[in-house]
Computed example of a mutant assay.
Amino acid sequence: MFLRYCEAALKQTQYKQLEDKSWFAEIEGFEGVWGNGDTVEECRTDLLEVLEEWILLKLRDGDILPIVDGVELKIIEEVEV
Rank of each mutant, 00 (worst) to 15 (best):
M1R: 14
M1S: 13
F2D: 05
L3N: 13
L3M: 10
R4N: 12
Y5T: 03
Y5L: 13
C6H: 02
E7T: 15
E7P: 05
E7R: 12
E7C: 13
A8E: 00
A8L: 03
L10H: 03
L10W: 07
L10I: 15
K11P: 05
Q12Y: 10
Q12W: 08
T13H: 11
T13F: 03
Q14V: 12
Q14M: 13
Q14D: 15
Y15T: 07
Y15G: 07
Y15W: 08
Y15R: 04
K16G: 10
K16I: 10
K16V: 13
L18T: 13
L18G: 06
L18D: 11
E19S: 14
D20E: 09
D20R: 05
D20K: 07
K21W: 10
K21I: 14
K21A: 12
S22I: 04
W23S: 02
F24Q: 02
F24G: 01
F24I: 05
F24M: 03
A25M: 06
A25S: 07
E26M: 09
I27K: 00
I27R: 00
E28K: 09
E28P: 03
G29Q: 02
G29I: 04
F30L: 07
F30E: 01
G32H: 15
G32W: 10
V33A: 01
V33T: 08
W34N: 10
G35F: 00
G35K: 02
N36P: 07
N36G: 13
G37I: 03
G37D: 03
G37H: 05
G37E: 02
D38G: 10
D38V: 09
D38H: 12
T39G: 07
V40L: 09
V40S: 04
E41V: 11
E41W: 04
E42Q: 15
C43F: 00
R44N: 09
R44Y: 04
T45Q: 11
T45W: 12
D46E: 08
L47C: 06
L48A: 02
E49A: 14
E49L: 09
E49Y: 10
V50E: 13
V50G: 05
V50H: 06
V50A: 13
L51D: 00
L51N: 00
E52S: 06
E52P: 00
E52A: 03
E53F: 15
E53M: 08
E53H: 13
E53S: 14
E53R: 10
W54N: 02
W54M: 05
W54E: 00
I55M: 00
L56G: 09
L56I: 08
L57P: 05
L57H: 12
K58C: 14
K58Q: 14
L59F: 06
L59M: 10
L59P: 00
R60M: 15
R60V: 09
R60G: 11
D61Q: 15
G62W: 07
D63K: 08
D63V: 04
I64K: 14
L65P: 01
L65M: 11
P66S: 08
I67Q: 11
V68N: 01
D69F: 08
V71E: 08
E72S: 15
E72A: 08
L73M: 11
L73S: 07
K74S: 13
K74C: 11
I75M: 06
I75Q: 03
I75R: 06
I75K: 06
I76T: 10
I76R: 15
I76L: 11
I76W: 10
E77W: 06
E77S: 08
E78M: 12
E78F: 08
E78P: 06
V79I: 09
V79Q: 07
V79G: 03
V79K: 03
